[in-house]
């Protein structure tokens, strides 16, 4: 055997490697890195893209602070998040647990639950818009069977956001089911066997084995779902154009779109975009620092 060298030989730099990075670095720099600084800069100006930009200092942020529509859009986004994310996770986990057994037709079920995920949100938004239609919609016809009076769903400020949420959960559920299912399959079966020998019932097993061992997966799923729900746009645009009755479905990204590309207030839209960026950034950071410490890793 060769004696082990104390110091590994310092490898020579292979400068040609930079060439391989060029395409990716150019595109990322031009369309991701520069824009984020540009956006921050732009938020100090008022600008409509055509006339000369005017420096306004912090004025955009001050207006934003007092903009009722902005606060409403944040409120709506938070409402969407705190209803849709737990609903999605609870349903997805339940389905995954049901699927995580040696049952016939497992592949078929998996296939079915995943179909809404791959279909495009715009096409299914059109379908759901008709499902929610007050006169000829499926939902009102269905609840009519139980004697419940028809509702105006997407046209009613009380129901509009909930309708969007139900449709979004239906659309995104399968994705989390598959991720939970993989997580469940990674839990060693001998743990359950040992627990059964010790006389633990199903509920105990779920609480003391499944949930703790699944927590990294649950963590991953919730971070991704929360970030995703802060970016909701397409279904709002398609199903409740304009932001819904009494702006009840106006989300942050929809408001950003409206201000930027409806009114062409680019500086103001940049201020909104920058706050959205900070929010998502902090959310990710918070989850990484605080929640990740508490979850159980094998």
């Amino acid at each position: 055997m060769m004696p082990r060298k104390n110091k590994p030989k310092r490898p020579k730099y292979q400068y040609f490697a930079f060439w391989y990075l060029v395409p990716t670095l150019i595109v990322i720099t031009a369309f991701h890195v520069i824009p984020i600084f540009f956006s921050l800069g732009l938020s100090f100006f008022s600008w409509d893209l055509i006339s000369t930009a005017k420096f306004e200092g912090l004025r955009n942020f001050r207006i934003l602070w007092n903009d009722p529509l902005y606060w409403l859009s944040i409120r709506n986004t938070i409402y969407y998040t705190i209803v849709a994310v737990p609903l999605n996770i609870i349903l997805a986990l339940t389905i995954a647990i049901l699927l995580n057994q040696k049952i016939r037709g497992m592949d078929a079920y998996r296939l079915i639950y995943f179909i809404p995920v791959i279909t495009s949100i715009n096409a299914v938004s059109i379908v759901w818009k008709l499902i929610y239609h007050p006169n000829i919609g499926l939902l009102n016809a269905f609840i009519g069977l139980f004697g419940i009076p028809p509702q105006r769903w997407l046209l009613d400020p009380k129901w509009a956001m909930l309708s969007i949420i139900v449709m979004s959960v239906w659309k995104g559920l399968g994705y989390n089911v598959i991720i939970f299912l993989t997580g469940l399959k990674n839990i060693p079966p001998h743990l359950y066997e040992a627990a059964t020998v010790d006389g633990a019932n199903r509920m105990h097993q779920f609480r003391h084995i499944t949930l703790p061992l699944l927590s990294p997966v649950t963590f991953f799923v919730s971070v991704m779902s929360i970030i995703g729900s802060f970016q909701v746009f397409a279904q709002i645009y398609m199903m409740t154009p304009g932001g819904g009755p009494m702006n009840s479905t106006l989300t942050i990204v929809y408001y950003l779109y409206k201000v930027g590309f409806g009114d062409f207030h680019f500086g103001y839209a940049s201020a909104i975009a920058f706050e959205l960026f900070i929010m998502i950034f902090l959310l990710t950071l918070f989850q990484k620092l605080v929640v990740e410490k508490r979850v159980h890793y094998q």
Partner: peptide, 18 residues
């Protein structure tokens, strides 16, 4: 850069493309 949400880039990217 993966932490940057795409929506935050809409306005500046639009200006750059313009």
């Amino acid at each position: 850069t993966m932490m940057i949400p795409q929506q935050a880039l809409l306005v500046p990217d639009y200006v750059i493309l313009a």
